[in-house]
């Protein structure tokens, strides 16, 4: 196991959205702060810093995780996916992102990256969720603008699309 000292800055390297990234940080630095302020990937947002709101959700080795409850050093050597990794390289939105726009599933957009990441993980494991299952996943996130109606509609639309073209 890698050992890090509390007072030393340490080099942390992982892949972010398929690309190798690296930076130095104290061992106590949160993954949110590392992503946002060391790497400069500001798409991941910080809403509560106590794991409730879900704004900061990222994928670590494909699994949704709260990056505000994760130390940057815990990402060492792993594959991190954030909202910046969802669209095509030319900026074209993926099906989930498009559905969010079409169903007005965001207003201020601050909670949106975390919600997109949770459903990116979930829909990969369960492409055809029921509405109850969608609500169950979404209940791990707080949104103050939308009342959630558009988000549920957007994910339902995407999963309906999935059922036409099973992957």
């Amino acid at each position: 196991m890698r050992r890090v000292n509390k007072d030393e800055r340490t080099r942390i390297s992982f892949t972010l959205n398929g690309r190798a990234v690296s930076g130095e940080a104290e061992s106590r630095m949160l993954l949110t702060d590392f992503l946002r302020h060391v790497i400069g990937a500001t798409g991941t947002h910080v809403g509560c810093e106590h794991g409730v709101c879900g704004c900061c959700t990222v994928l670590i080795d494909g699994v949704a995780a709260r990056s505000c409850l994760t130390l940057a050093v815990q990402a060492e050597g792993r594959a991190v996916t954030t909202v910046e990794g969802l669209a095509a390289p030319d900026g074209a939105l993926n099906a989930l992102q498009q559905a969010f726009q079409r169903h007005h599933a965001l207003q201020c957009g601050f909670c949106t990256p975390g919600i997109l990441m949770s459903f990116t993980d979930y829909l990969a494991r369960n492409p055809h969720p029921t509405e109850d299952e969608i609500r169950d996943v979404l209940s791990g996130h707080l949104c103050r603008c939308t009342g959630y109606a558009g988000i549920v509609a957007a994910v339902r639309a995407v999963s309906a699309g999935n059922s036409k073209q099973p992957s």
Partner: peptide
């Protein structure tokens, strides 16, 4: 549909922090 959305959905918002 909103012109604000593509940037916000792609992590390209420009919030204060």
């Amino acid at each position: 549909v909103r012109k604000e959305d593509p940037a916000l959905l792609s992590g390209r918002g420009r919030y204060a922090d």
